[in-house]
């Protein structure tokens, strides 16, 4: 979980930085999207690196989900009889956030791809520039899309707040002296991602970007 999670965190950071380009105008954003596909050209053919990265990402997602499912199954097997009363002593939201949050995030990603990558549920459709799709997608008339997006991104933030320091713990890189720092880093990265991801759609919905 830790390794695949780390891959995805790195992806999210890059993705978030790319998104912010929308603030520098449609051209800047479209150029970034095009740039992704022509990375390493002419050494490599069009979209080669991006495809490789996509494959790594898909493998990570699948492996991450597979690990999560097998952990959940092990947990269920380890406690066949449930408690009549059970009260968390450690904040307690972690498991729910990680498990149900994870499911929410998957559903969101499906929608997100249909919307902004393949344009299936986007008013501009697939034959449009990425910036067009983004701006049309978060149009004020489609406020509910933005709302959905906000909920999902916040969920990702919470997921990562536990996930990032948890990855350090799982990889054996944490210790008592580092806990505070690690938890702070996790919170900071999560917050940065949430802000970075929410800024463009909110700006669009509220008409800052047209």
């Amino acid at each position: 979980m830790a390794v695949t999670g780390a891959v995805m965190v790195i992806f999210l950071l890059a993705h978030m930085l790319g998104n912010v380009k929308i603030f520098f105008g449609r051209e800047s954003f479209n150029a970034y999207a095009h740039g992704l596909r022509t990375l390493l050209e002419p050494m490599a053919p069009y979209r080669l690196l991006l495809t490789v990265l996509e494959i790594v990402l898909v493998v990570s997602v699948v492996a991450h989900m597979w690990a999560a499912i097998s952990l959940a199954r092990r947990a269920r097997k380890a406690r066949p009889v449930k408690y009549v009363a059970k009260k968390s002593q450690a904040g307690g939201y972690t498991t729910h956030i990680m498990r149900f949050g994870g499911v929410t995030i998957v559903l969101f990603v499906v929608w997100h791809l249909l919307d902004l990558t393949f344009g299936v549920v986007n008013p501009k459709g697939f034959d449009s520039t990425p910036a067009d799709r983004m701006i049309a997608g978060f149009d004020a008339s489609r406020w509910w899309v933005t709302l959905l997006y906000v909920v999902a991104v916040v969920m990702i933030g919470l997921h990562l707040r536990h996930g990032i320091w948890s990855a350090f713990q799982t990889l054996g890189l944490a210790n008592r002296a580092r806990y505070r720092a690690l938890k702070a880093v996790a919170a900071l990265v999560s917050a940065a991602l949430v802000i970075g991801f929410l800024a463009p759609p909110l700006a669009i919905t509220f008409g800052v970007i047209k």
Partner: peptide, 26 residues
């Protein structure tokens, strides 16, 4: 079951065994 670093264990541990032991183990 497997560990997902929820911290419930150390919270109820009567001897307060710290969670970073698990990092050490890992």
């Amino acid at each position: 079951g497997g560990c997902t670093n929820t911290g419930e264990c150390t919270a109820v541990c009567p001897k307060g065994i710290p969670l970073d032991t698990i990092a050490q183990m890992n």
